[in-house]
Design a protein around this nucleic acid. Structure first.
Lengths: 208, 201
DNA sequence: ATCTTACTTTACAAAGC
DNA sequence: GCTTTAAAAAGTAAGAT
């Protein structure tokens, strides 16, 4: 009936208004994170699903947008931590993480387990490392995963340690400090992962 | 501590009940201000939290007491300990001339347990094959699995150790551990722990 | 560099904001 | 949703020594 059509139209317009505001936020945060258009498009798709399912009610548009961005990054294999993303919102990491979990549970969005090799790409580009170093780091991470060294560990910390080793092996020494900083982990974590990788994978470090 | 050994499958789990959360209902209202005045070592700050905090040393539990006469008791490691603790709490209240009428109704709301399967668990594979799971190593090292029957949540670590929570009866804990072992085994997400490693624990 | 303390996750109730 | 309580798992973090 007319009434029903009217209700539907009203709901649609509220969704449209929400989407319009969300797309602005998405564009803003996405640009601050230097995300490619493909990731922003993917995040927009995820966000649209969330609004249509009414998941944004009672939550800030901004934190759901941030969660959608995080999910999109994971799907597109563009490494960004929840901390990096939430720093551009008024919400904290915990709130964005809460929204992310909601998206995972309520939407049919498949998100692969985060891959430390994606962080090699991320850290590598920030430090302008050579392809050779990144390739070596990726190989180290593959071996580590095969022997069960990576389970439960922060992929950013694993990638940082692998890069530290790979850089040494390729005569392009980087300090644990600079790697830790761009990876978003502490030096202690890099050191711990480093020791473990060296010992368990029997990696020889060029002595200097 | 309960050790379960099953001859059919090579299944050996060490299970520990770590914490029981229960509610206790006293059919009467309580004057928390009067209690705070007369009972020593009590915390009561209604601006911060509506409940009064009372810690019992033996058995070591903590109870939150509300003016409605309802309480929450946490920290017990067994049902016996929980019942003993509730009796002592009420005896203590009476000792400080707080009138308690009738007998308390105790309801277990949640049981938290830990278990060790003594195997390595391939979390990446489990995350891919198990339903209703979440594995976000950036956020937390354990895989979170929501089991339907018994309805509990398990935090599974690659070491084969785990946390089981959400159970309302102890047998649900044992059932859940047995079930997750069988499930992980069927999905081939389990591998033996080296004897050397086994010994160090 | 290593130690200690503390926070991440899970479930659950209570009464009130 | 938050506040408070308890407890485990393993990883990470922060501040002190």
């Amino acid at each position: 009936r007319w009434r029903k059509w009217q209700i539907r139209a009203r709901i649609q317009s509220s969704i449209d208004r929400n989407l319009a505001q969300a797309m602005n936020e998405l564009e803003r945060i996405g640009n601050l994170l230097n995300l490619p258009k493909s990731v922003k498009d993917e995040a927009a798709l995820i966000y649209r699903k969330a609004v249509e399912k009414g998941l944004v009610r009672g939550r800030s548009i901004e934190s759901v947008v941030a969660a959608a961005i995080y999910a999109a990054c994971r799907r597109m294999k563009i490494a960004r931590t929840l901390d990096e993303i939430s720093q551009f919102t008024k919400a904290n990491r915990k709130e964005v993480a809460r929204c992310y979990r909601l998206l995972l549970r309520e939407l049919d969005v498949e998100v692969p387990v985060s891959d430390s090799k994606d962080y090699v790409t991320r850290i590598g580009s920030l430090l302008r490392l050579s392809g050779a170093v990144m390739k070596t780091a990726a190989e180290i991470l593959d071996k580590a995963k095969n022997v069960g060294l990576t389970a439960g560990k922060d992929p950013a910390g694993l990638a940082a340690a692998a890069i530290y080793i790979a850089a040494l092996q390729n005569d392009d020494r980087r300090t644990q400090k600079e790697i830790a900083q761009v990876a978003g982990v502490t030096e202690v974590t890099v050191r711990n992962r480093y020791k473990e990788l060296i010992n368990e994978l029997k990696i020889q470090i060029p002595t200097q | 501590m309960v050790i379960i050994a099953d001859s059919n499958v090579q299944y050996k789990a060490v299970i520990n009940i770590e914490n029981i959360v229960a509610t206790v209902t006293l059919d009467q209202n309580l004057d928390l201000y009067a209690m705070e005045r007369s009972i020593p070592n009590i915390e009561y700050d209604p601006d911060q939290f509506p409940g009064l905090i009372f810690r019992l040393e033996q058995p070591k539990v903590t109870s939150l007491i509300f003016k409605s006469g309802k309480m929450v008791v946490t920290g017990a490691k067994s049902t016996d300990e929980l019942i003993k603790a509730v009796k002592r709490i009420i005896r203590t209240l009476r000792r400080y001339s707080i009138r308690i009428i009738g007998k308390p109704k105790i309801q277990i709301q949640n049981i938290v347990a830990s278990a060790n399967l003594h195997v390595h668990v391939n979390l990446d594979k489990a995350a891919f094959l198990l339903e209703n799971n979440m594995y976000e190593p950036e956020q937390f090292p354990g895989l979170i699995f929501r089991m339907d029957e018994p309805k509990v949540v398990l935090l599974i670590f690659s070491s084969g150790k785990m946390v089981i929570t959400g159970a309302k009866r102890e047998d649900e804990v044992y059932k859940a551990v047995k079930r997750i072992f069988e499930k992980l085994n069927e999905l081939e997400c389990i591998s033996a722990v080296e004897e050397e490693e086994e010994l160090e624990l």
